[in-house]
């Protein structure tokens, strides 16, 4: 999932301070799972904003809605008949949702309610960590299912650096060395010979380095 974290309330207040009719839009997908922008977080933000404006003596209309997704036309269309009642939207979806909303409703200011962080997993409730950077050429088959692009601080492809100590990364002793994980896993899979093979220099053109990316599937296009 895409992992996001809630923006500081002060930052959101600054975004919406000048407006009188605010629509807060949550997303029922990734940001709900990581507890940053689902229905519950929309309600919490709405309360905080109402309290802020009440303390200021300013009357502000604040409404809440949570869409199934904000990265698909059909769900964003659900706002079509009501969006004109507001003068600003705060989207608590990831950056994808915020942008898609802004593209769809060109005359409506759309503010982000969360900071989008990475693609990751729920390690335990309240702890999410990165697993994928979307580099466009997955090499997990060669690294025992552990990604050196997203999990090695230096994105190394041919084994650990000299900073790896007792299986931990030099950037933080709480971070496990990705290559330690890869080697352990290769041992378990009895595939250590794969680890010894040199990996060709990576082609980054499928990553963001090649510019904004697009996937086109003519076979599923209507």
């Amino acid at each position: 999932m895409i992992v996001a974290k809630r923006k500081p309330i002060e930052e959101i207040i600054e975004e919406v301070q000048a407006y009188d009719k605010i629509l807060l839009v949550g997303c029922n997908e990734c940001v709900t799972v990581c507890e940053a922008g689902g229905k519950k977080e929309v309600a919490v933000l709405a309360s905080a904003l109402r309290m802020h404006f009440m303390n200021q003596g300013k009357e502000v209309k604040i409404d809440e809605i949570t869409l199934e997704r904000q990265c698909d036309h059909e769900y964003l269309e659900e706002l079509r008949n009501q969006i004109d009642q507001y003068d600003v939207v705060v989207s608590l979806a990831c950056g994808v949702g915020v942008q898609f909303m802004a593209e769809k409703y060109m005359n409506m200011p759309v503010m982000p309610g969360v900071d989008t962080c990475f693609m990751g997993v729920t390690e335990e409730r309240g702890v999410w960590s990165e697993r994928c950077q979307g580099c466009g050429t997955c090499m997990l088959a060669k690294t025992g299912g552990i990604c050196p692009v997203s999990r090695c601080a230096k994105r190394l492809f041919n084994g650990p650096c000299g900073g790896s100590t007792n299986g931990h990364c030099e950037i933080d002793k709480n971070v496990i060395c990705a290559w330690q994980l890869i080697i352990d896993r290769m041992k378990n899979l009895d595939k250590l010979e794969d680890y010894e093979a040199l990996v060709p220099i990576k082609d980054w053109s499928t990553e963001r380095a090649g510019g904004p990316r697009k996937v086109v599937r003519e076979d599923v296009m209507q």
Binding site: I201, K202, D203, W204, S205, E207, A209, G210
Partner: peptide
């Protein structure tokens, strides 16, 4: 350029 595989 001639190294389109690079990371900018």
């Amino acid at each position: 350029g001639d190294h389109p595989q690079t990371r900018t």
